[in-house]
């Protein structure tokens, strides 16, 4: 067994530098790598490019990095939940590339799987297609999108083992599996880290080969953005 365990978030985030490109898993605040983000906030790094579906909220998730102006550029599909983000974007302090959500997922997976680019119909005829190669297949138009290149991917899983194997839970899975192995170094934080041999190999969602560092997060707040509940009769 090849050991992927690191002592904690400090060791897991070793080597991050200013001006790097990071991938961060999560949809809204669901399934975000909370502990890794908290560690990045404490580091004196700036000029970051972050690939993440959303940008957190003002005081949680990637919003924390935005507050400190550590992010130079965001590549996301939807950023509606963050006032500071909108302010920095409209004032021009923050460079933002908005791309279709399926394209975002696939550009991660292309990087994971060694595809330089792929064709998708999403965004054809819109400003997303500007400057991109287009091509017709079977009477329909597609645009060429390229795989991402990133230095680190920070992902969050429910359970993991010392070999880096990961199991996700619920919709906290989202972009996390797509980002594993899509950057030079993938850092996985898990709610529960177990010895190798404890996970049934049949249940593993992401094999450890896609993960370089794994640690158990100290604590998880798992903040809910829109608590919608029904009253019991």
């Amino acid at each position: 067994m090849i050991q992927k365990t690191v002592s904690g978030v400090i060791e897991a985030t070793e080597g991050v530098k200013s001006n790097m490109t990071f991938m961060l898993g999560g949809f809204g605040l669901c399934g975000i790598p909370e502990n890794s983000i908290a560690a990045l906030v404490k580091k004196n790094i700036k000029g970051l490019t972050c690939i993440s579906n959303n940008a957190g909220v003002d005081d949680f998730g990637l919003g924390l990095l935005l507050q400190q102006k550590q992010i130079k550029k965001m590549i996301s599909s939807y950023v509606g939940e963050n006032d500071e983000f909108e302010r920095q974007m409209l004032s021009g302090e923050l460079d933002v590339e908005l791309i279709p959500q399926g394209t975002l997922a696939e550009r991660c997976r292309a990087a994971q799987g060694g595809f330089p680019a792929f064709y998708t119909p999403a965004g054809y005829g819109t400003e997303v297609a500007e400057g991109k190669e287009t091509r017709e297949f079977n009477g329909k138009m597609y645009i060429l999108e390229q795989a991402f290149k990133a230095d680190f991917a920070f992902v969050k899983a429910w359970k993991g083992d010392e070999a880096g194997n990961l199991i996700f839970k619920g919709t906290a899975r989202n972009f996390n599996p797509c980002m594993c192995g899509a950057a030079k170094i993938t850092v996985a934080e898990v709610e529960e880290l177990v010895p190798a041999g404890s996970l049934d190999p049949n249940h593993v969602h992401i094999p450890g080969i896609f993960v370089q560092r794994i640690f158990q997060g100290e604590k998880y707040e798992k903040r809910i953005e829109q608590r919608t509940v029904l009253k019991k009769e």
Binding site: Y78, P100, A122
Partner: peptide
């Protein structure tokens, strides 16, 4: 207003 397209472009294109 710049919230982003989310999955809408993938949905309508397909």
């Amino acid at each position: 207003m710049v919230k982003g397209m989310g999955g809408a472009m993938d949905l309508v294109a397909s």
